[in-house]
Every structure is written in C-alpha cells, then in structure tokens.
Amino acid sequence: MKALAAVALLGLVALLALGVSGVFPRPAVPSGEDIAAAWGAENVVAAIILGVRLWDTLFEILVYAMTMVGVKLGLRLLRWERPLPPVAETPLLRRSADLLLGPIVVFALYVAVSGHLGPGGGFPAGALLGTALLLLALAKGVERLSAEIHEPTLEWAEYGAIVAILALTGALLLVGRRGSAHLIAANLLIALEVAIGAWVVLHRFASSRGEV
C-alpha cells in the first residue's frame, strides 16, 4: 500500500514537472480581444463563459439545479419535533430592508444585462437577486412572503429557466450564431436560475424553523 502511494506521488510529481518543462506543445491560445470580438462581447470572461466554454457553464448550472433539488428533498425529510420560538422583528431591520430592496434589484438587473460589456454576468446577478429576496423575506416575514409567492409557480419557473437555457445553448451551438443579444438572454436566464435556487434554499431553511 505504501509502495503504491509512493508510486502515485512520484507519478504526480513527474507529471507536474513534465507539464511545466515544456515537453508538451503549448496550444496556441487566441488572444482575449479576438475571443471577445468573435462572440460579440467586451468582457472577455463573459465571452469565455457563454461562448467558448458554454458546455461547461451549462453543466455547472445543472449541478446547481440538482443540488437545489437535493436541498429540497433533504429538508422535506426532516421532522421538526418542536419549532423554535420566532424572533421578534425589529423596525430598524424592516425599514432598512425596505430601503435597500429596490436599489439591489435594479443593480442586479443592471449587472445581468451589462454582463457582456463590463464586470458582472448572470452568476453575480443571480446572487444579488437572491440577496434581494432575502431582504424581502426579512422585511415581510417568510410566511407572508411565501403565501404571496406561489411555490409551484416558482418551481416551474426554475425548470423553465433550465429548459430555456438548454434550448438557447442548443441553438447557439447548432446554428452557430453569435451576438450580444444571445449573451444578454443567457445572462438573464442564468440570473433567474441562480436567484430562484438561492431563494429556494433560504426559504426552506428559514421556514422550516419558523421565521427568519
């Protein structure tokens, strides 16, 4: 066993050494400007995520969605013996949540829409939208908010976002059309998917306990 581990370790070190030694030919990587120009973006990172490595991004999103399904199932299995007493809500929290909510949503949308031009994109926008929903939950109370938001609709929206992302990806890959419009659409869909996933987690965690 020890000999095997030693061989594995030596092999790993040898591979690393080979990798940096320059024995393997380095593939010619196009410059960032070329990639960005080819996909109709100015942010090279966005061009890579939604263009060159689209498949990778797609499956990352699927991993995310599956993890959310796991969270839902896990929390559904729980049987709370005795709920905790709810936390008294403070007017300060409520007011500041009310004040911050609008700007955060607007900023998240801006980040999603302008993701191909500047820093941003679907992932941070989705996380920001999730934070906004969290603030909304803090301001209104999880129970009231989840009574207003129809949960199955939300789930269908999530699955719809995944299907739309798949369709968009397929279209992009099959037709080979490129342009900023596709990038904006993909960013918005990713933001929607991430935000709904974050909301599902926060809501399930919070409501299985009583209140935020």
């Binding site: 796991g70 896990g74 299995l77 992932f123 987690v201």
Partner: peptide
C-alpha cells in the same frame, strides 16, 4: 488571463450550493 476567472466564477456559485446541501445534512 481571463480563463481562470471564468473557471472560478462558476466554482464560487457551486460552492454555495454544495455548502447548502452539506448544511442541510448537518441540520438533519
């Protein structure tokens, strides 16, 4: 180099998701 940035961007979000899953099972 934009490539590591692109790799890392999704990793952060996936981190959050797996962390949520792990916490669910800790609570369980």
């Amino acid at each position: 180099d934009p490539l590591p940035h692109a790799l890392v961007l999704t990793a952060i979000v996936i981190d959050f998701a797996t962390l949520a899953l792990a916490l669910v099972y800790v609570v369980f």
